Amino acid sequence: MKKTIYTLLFITTILFNCSSDDDSNQGDDIPEYRIEFSGEVSTQIDDYNFGVEFISDGTIVSNNTWTGNTTQLISDFKELSGNTIGIKLEVVDFVPDGSNNPLGMRLNSINVKITKLSDDTVLVNEDLEPLFTNTDSRYIATLSYNILSEDLVIEYETDGF
């Protein structure tokens, strides 16, 4: 009889230790937000090469590039979680003060949208300045949004201005 009680206590202890109500680690990887962008790429001289990075809490989660020589609409999205999420758009391989930079590339009509997935609330719907390469260039645009404080930061990197 004692052996049976000890066996039941042992099994009960294992069951309670294995099935915790603490869900703090569960769902950390479940995306809570959708960040998307769209724009129109074109070139007048050299082929274009534009890239995008999706960022969550300072870590690049995903990236993509577009290369070509015809005008086209481009877009991409990623579902993310984190306290600060963002996107970085750039002219790939651009070197400030470089003499061999491609010329005539443009990324126009850039729109970035961040949506809360649980209720489809649009948190950010922002039009960005175009990216372009010429004698003056705007070659990087970075948008970051802090979910907790609702702070929106947009930064551009330029050359030749």
Results as ranks from 00 to 15, higher is better:
11 I>T: 15
75 S>A: 08
142 T>G: 00
85 I>T: 07
3 K>P: 01
118 S>W: 04
156 Y>M: 07
76 D>E: 11
111 N>K: 15
119 D>Q: 03
150 E>R: 09
52 V>F: 02
104 G>D: 01
36 E>M: 12
57 D>W: 05
118 S>K: 11
125 N>S: 14
152 L>R: 07
53 E>C: 05
47 D>C: 03
84 T>A: 04
83 N>Q: 11
84 T>C: 05
13 T>C: 06
88 K>H: 06
71 T>P: 10
14 I>S: 07
107 L>C: 06
123 L>W: 01
54 F>N: 07
134 N>R: 05
16 F>Y: 13
138 R>A: 01
114 I>V: 15
144 S>L: 08
29 D>W: 10
71 T>I: 04
156 Y>W: 06
116 K>P: 06
22 D>E: 05
112 V>C: 12
50 F>V: 04
48 Y>S: 04
28 D>N: 14
68 G>W: 15
57 D>L: 01
123 L>R: 00
59 T>C: 00
93 D>L: 09
41 V>T: 12
27 G>K: 00
139 Y>R: 11
47 D>E: 14
133 T>Q: 00
136 D>G: 11
134 N>M: 14
75 S>P: 01
2 K>A: 15
154 I>K: 00
22 D>M: 02
67 T>Y: 14
102 P>S: 12
64 N>V: 02
3 K>Y: 14
43 T>N: 11
139 Y>F: 15
136 D>R: 08
25 N>V: 10
64 N>I: 04
143 L>V: 11
128 L>E: 04
34 R>A: 13
143 L>S: 07
23 D>K: 09
100 N>P: 02
18 C>M: 14
98 G>Y: 00
43 T>I: 01
95 V>N: 12
126 E>P: 04
73 L>Q: 14
21 D>H: 07
155 E>Y: 04
20 S>G: 07
113 K>C: 10
100 N>I: 04
117 L>Q: 01
106 R>N: 15
81 S>T: 15
74 I>A: 07
37 F>T: 02
131 L>C: 03
85 I>K: 12
88 K>G: 05
49 N>P: 04
64 N>F: 08
91 V>Y: 09
117 L>N: 07
145 Y>T: 04
40 E>K: 12
99 S>I: 09
88 K>R: 14
61 V>Y: 08
96 P>T: 06
155 E>C: 00
157 E>W: 08
78 K>Y: 08
1 M>K: 05
25 N>M: 14
36 E>N: 11
43 T>S: 14
23 D>N: 13
115 T>F: 05
